[in-house]
Design a protein around this nucleic acid. Structure first.
Lengths: 329, 329
DNA sequence: ATGCATTATGTAATCGTTTACACTATTGGC
DNA sequence: GCCAATAGTGTAAACGATTACATAATGCAT
């Protein structure tokens, strides 16, 4: 492995000089610079990032910690973060927590040990943020799920408003017996539940049912099945994430009921399949690109100015009304 | 930041001794070990991985380089690799190439510079493997896409056989005018095309059309649309990946044609939506869990024994026959 | 010419580990 | 009881960069 020493020798200079032309932060005689550059090219030298990181105690990497990489929402975020980071010359380490606090802690520690410049993550429900101590260790920004602290940068969706809009859309389309399925793994489920109930209340309705369950297709299916078989069958199912939407959709199909005539289905997040099924499903689309990009920018800001006062950015979802909730059709 | 020196001081031993109890690879007097362990706990010390990595010239990380993290196939692989690596105490760096050779090279270099123990990746079409020199730099195993070299570990699907089976399934169900849509970004498309044509030939048929296109939903849609509007309309569309499947499905829907009565659709990879649409789509499911796991194991084997002769593992896909290809229904 | 700022470069310490080597103390075989 | 092996520990040299400090050479104003 060729090191800075080899380059220095080949160019007839000291390692300090080589380092300086690399960093480009000190005056160098053009003639010397050329010799060094030539040596670098000749030897096909690339600086050892590990050594650099050890010395300067940081690196051009950021961490991204999410609960499930298979959730299209998070992969979309991942892409956005990666693209934004790439533009700044940073690379991204993606980690899966599986909603497991142990894994979460492990990866956070790992990232810290890797000297990442910062981390973007969506915490599990149990995550106990001690922003004070945490921010000292490394800068970070929270996405998707709120934490109970104002001392940290966050990028969130206005979940209450989005859920309100989605619920009102159902009501405006003539649905009256709404059931809600909410993820129990994060604060988003709770907030969306709030918006759901608020809209009902404002329209003088009450929900037929509201369940907090694990955000998995199977759970969505099972719960929906139970709902559809009960005496007071809902005429619309509101789901708080795409896993539950898929489960609910499947349940309605298997019950030989018609969407949207017998029961409407609405949910969150635009997916490949949402527009493909018949009828396509009405959703609140989250601005994933913007969320990822904003989070990355916020992180870079904090890296540069660690004491900057924390910001919370709240973005709006947009309703995509489709066949699954249009009774008249 | 507390270092090994602090621990050594606190325990009244040398740094070498601390390092030895950490590595657990040398005889230590139990009493000393306890003192060190206590000091570690008291100081809440965690070894600096960067420094370790610099010293031993490797790390407990592996790289995973894929073309698009949003493709469900790759995310599934990602999860499998991560789980397998996690069991061995390794963590995974995921990288996106976007089918861009420049990005590919950049990330491969980055991973190399990060002292990863090895990398698992699916190369772009243009990737020029010089296995000799490459393997020297770091161990790696190829997945999904074959490269033209026998000097490297690979985990592949038997694409020809899978495509053959899928095609024959169409033929057996009475379809005669088959069109094929193949991804142009990798060798898989070509191999699946071979299986497709071989099956046709064996049954004395010829394809209505066969196109190599970019593996994106939009491309699949556009090409399918053209196909469906031509005079000699196919009665079945064979797609070589899930992006194309989605595009084709949408095109048929928008053409007001019926699946599978007017035209059948088959493809590769099990997705959330494949079973959800009506009719659900017939696919070859790839054993993603096994692919990821096998690749990881192969990689660990090579890390341990770099000179071991390369292995190619070929796995079988399994046909999931569903409504999209059952004419009689 | 003199002094001072600035340019251009080298020397060596440093980041936090691991590990080759050296050394002493203990053990077991005879 | 002696010797060789082994247990148990410390010293110091790496790993490959960055950078504070020192030094030499140059430019410029006086």
């Amino acid at each position: 492995m060729t090191s800075i020493k080899d380059v220095a020798k080949a160019a007839g200079v000291s390692t300090a000089t080589v380092s300086r032309v690399l960093a480009n932060n000190a005056p160098i005689k053009p003639e010397t610079r050329d010799r060094v550059l030539k040596a670098i090219a000749d030897l096909n030298y690339r600086p050892n990032l590990i050594a650099r990181s050890l010395r300067v105690q940081k690196s051009a990497k950021i961490g991204l910690v999410v609960s499930d990489i298979r959730n299209p929402f998070f992969t979309a975020i991942g892409r956005a973060v990666e693209d934004a980071a790439y533009e700044q010359g940073y690379s991204v380490l993606m980690c899966n927590t599986d909603e497991d606090p142990d894994k979460e802690e492990l990866y956070l520690n790992l990232l810290h040990d890797e000297n990442v410049a910062g981390v973007i993550f969506s915490p599990t429900h149990q995550f106990n943020i001690d922003a004070q101590t945490y921010n000292q260790k490394m800068p970070f920004v929270i996405i998707d799920r709120a934490v109970d602290s104002s001392d940290v940068d966050m990028v969130l969706l206005d979940n209450v408003a989005a859920a309100y809009e989605l619920t009102e859309h159902l009501i405006n389309n003539g649905y009256k017996k709404l059931a809600g399925l909410f993820g129990d793994a994060s604060t988003t489920g709770q907030e969306r539940s709030r918006g759901f109930h608020k809209a009902l209340k404002d329209h003088h309705l009450t929900s037929v049912a509201a369940h907090f369950i694990a955000p998995r297709i199977q759970q969505g299916y099972d719960t929906s099945m139970a709902l559809l078989n009960q005496s007071n069958r809902p005429d619309a199912i509101f789901t708080s994430n795409s896993m539950l939407t898929a489960g609910a959709y499947k349940a309605v199909r298997d019950s030989k009921l018609k969407v949207p005539a017998d029961v409407a289905i609405v949910g969150f997040d635009e997916t490949t399949w949402g527009a493909l099924v018949d009828p396509p499903v009405t959703v609140i689309e989250q601005p994933t690109e913007e969320i990822g990009r904003t989070a990355t920018e916020l992180l870079f800001q904090r890296i540069q100015e660690p004491s900057r006062s924390p910001k919370t950015v709240i973005l709006k979802g947009s309703l995509i009304a489709r066949g699954s909730s249009l009774k008249s059709k």
